[in-house]
Each structure stands twice: as structure tokens, then as C-alpha cells.
Amino acid sequence: MQPAHAEAGAIRGRVLDAGCGTGEHTLMAAGLGLDATGIDLASRALRTAEDKARVRGRTARFLRYDARELATFSEQFDTALDCGLFHVLGGEVRTAYVAGLRTVLRSGRRCFLLCISDRERGDWGTVHRASRSDVEAAFSDGWRIDSVEPSAIHLIGDPGHVEAWLVALTRT
């Protein structure tokens, strides 16, 4: 996510970071004083996230949970963040994930999504590069798409970044 979203107050309330990895976006939300929860399947990444939280003196919750099963998650959130999960899911799994996001996000609340776009030409294996129309189709039911903007996912090392879409959504 872009720090500008956080600075503008667009990230608020209870925050869910789906596929949080090592927790950078969860910790960003916690640093804003928000109730932040990160979920991921990778135990090692979650341990790293917890270590980062301790070192930075931030309070955040990290849970081992399958984001593809969000429809069964028994909590509700005001903001959902997805930086790098949507583009690794395809077909029915992606459909179930989006439906699960809708389940855990309160009506009228926001989701921010950063995914590898079809503009990216590098070889990223099994990543499902998303076109603008892929995003629109995935979020056509129960969502208002507020914006789809060209962006980048910054990487450590070569190539430095990956072409992406930054999507802002509101659950209807």
C-alpha cells in the first residue's frame, strides 16, 4: 500500500492484512494506532512479523489462517489490505477469496489491493497477472471500484520493482 493512503486517513478502524507475510503493512496500520491483524499461512513469516512488532514496539496480532477461507473467519473489519495475495490466486480460488473479503469487511468500508498487473513483462512463474478487466470482473458483485491506478511493487534486488495495479474498493 502507499503511505499516502495511511497519511490521508483512508486506512482506519480494525484492519485486516490478508496474506501479510512478514507483516510490514500490518505494522504500518499498528503504527497508526489501529487495531491491526495480519493473517498468513507461512509460520516462518508470521514469526518474523511478531519479531518485527516486538523490536518496533508495536501491538499487532498475527494469525496463521488461510485467506482463501475468509468466509469462515468470525471477525469483521473496517479496512482490508492485500499486497501480493490476489495475483497468486486464480479461478474459483480467487472467486472464493473475494467473496470471503466481502464477508469480513463491514458494509461501506474499504479494501486496498496491490497486485501484479498484465503490464509486467518479467517471468513470475505461477503468478496470475491481473488486467484491469480481471479486477473489475472479480469485484463486480458487492463492491464499488473507486480506483484502479498503475503502480509498482518494490523489490529488494533486481529488477527493483514489478508493474502493478493499486486498487481502492468499497464494500457495498
Rank of each mutant, 00 (worst) to 15 (best):
H161M: 14
Y97T: 04
G38H: 10
Y97I: 07
D82H: 10
R64C: 06
G100W: 09
G13F: 08
F73K: 03
D51Y: 13
H161Q: 15
A8M: 05
G91P: 01
E92R: 14
R61E: 13
T126Y: 01
G23R: 09
R56H: 13
T72Y: 09
V55Q: 14
L85E: 05
F112Q: 04
S74M: 00
R61T: 14
G31W: 09
G108L: 13
D78H: 12
T170L: 08
I153S: 09
H128T: 01
H87C: 11
V98E: 03
T79V: 13
G90S: 15
V162F: 07
L114H: 03
A80D: 00
I145R: 09
G100L: 08
I116C: 15
D134F: 04
I116M: 14
R14M: 06
R64M: 04
D78I: 09
F112I: 02
P150W: 06
R144N: 13
R68Y: 05
A138Q: 09
S43F: 03
E120S: 13
F112K: 03
T72C: 02
R56Q: 15
V148Q: 12
R54W: 01
G108N: 11
I11N: 03
Y97N: 06
R121A: 15
G142T: 04
C115N: 07
A130H: 15
R44H: 10
S133Q: 13
G9A: 03
R44P: 00
A138C: 11
A18V: 14
G9Q: 03
L70S: 07
L27Y: 09
T103H: 15
M1Y: 07
S151D: 09
C20K: 05
L89W: 04
V167Y: 11
G122Q: 09
H128F: 14
H25T: 06
T79Y: 12
G57L: 13
A152T: 06
I11P: 02
D134L: 06
L63Y: 06
A18S: 10
R171P: 00
F77D: 01
T72G: 09
H87S: 09
I39L: 11
D123W: 08
A8W: 01
A152I: 01
R94I: 02
G23D: 04
L63T: 12
T170C: 11
T95M: 04
D35P: 00
G13T: 06
V162L: 15
W165C: 03
E24M: 11
L63I: 15
D141K: 15
E92Q: 14
R119Q: 14
L81T: 04
I116Y: 14
L32H: 10
L101Y: 03
G100Q: 05
T103Y: 04
R94N: 06
A45V: 04
A30V: 03
